[in-house]
């Protein structure tokens, strides 16, 4: 989705320079929420203020909103059918590989950092063995970062 946004904003309509877009993108990635939404929101704000922001975010959400509503409408009626179940069981195996790929990517990034690995193991243990809400894991990890990193 990001390459598409870049193409529209930087190449096609020349609303932002390549450099400004990269700046926006890296900010968008460090904030919570969907990166595409954050990017659209920043671009809107830098072009024309809150109204443009709302307009661009709405335009970004609308295609996924309408397609998932249509998909949900169909899916909720037919999910019990054996062939639908079979398709989704197969596709879910691919989701597992997608998650594994992300684990690999972030894992290789922090593999040399023993402290990060110890913290990750501790947080995983909390997630698996206790009922603590994942949002506290985010706060705890960020908090540990504030105190332990320099």
């Amino acid at each position: 989705m990001i390459p598409l946004i870049r193409k529209e904003i930087v190449e096609r309509h020349k609303l932002l320079s390549e450099e400004a877009f990269l700046e926006v993108l890296s900010l968008a990635q460090s904030l919570p929420g969907a990166i595409a939404i954050n990017t659209a929101s920043f671009v809107g704000l830098s072009l024309g203020g809150v109204r443009t922001q709302l307009l661009l975010v709405l335009a970004t959400v609308l295609p996924s909103f309408s397609s998932i509503v249509a998909a949900a409408f169909v899916f909720l009626r037919f999910r019990e059918l054996p062939f639908v179940q079979a398709f989704f069981r197969g596709a879910l195996a691919v989701i597992a590989s997608l998650i594994a790929l992300s684990i690999w990517q972030i894992g290789t990034k922090i593999a040399q950092d023993t402290l990060d690995l110890v913290i990750a193991a501790f947080l995983l243990l909390l997630l698996l063995c206790t009922k603590v809400h994942p949002l506290f894991i985010v706060l705890l990890g960020g908090g540990l970062g504030v105190f332990l990193k320099r």
């Binding site: 069981r89 594994a100 193991a121 995983l124 960020g142 908090g143």
Partner: peptide
């Protein structure tokens, strides 16, 4: 804070993988 989120991401992804693999 953002630096502290790197191990958080790893832990959350492993948790997601566990959930998908165990029941999927």
């Amino acid at each position: 804070f953002l630096g502290g989120l790197r191990p958080v991401l790893l832990a959350l992804l492993l948790r997601a993988a566990f959930s998908v693999i165990r029941d999927g």
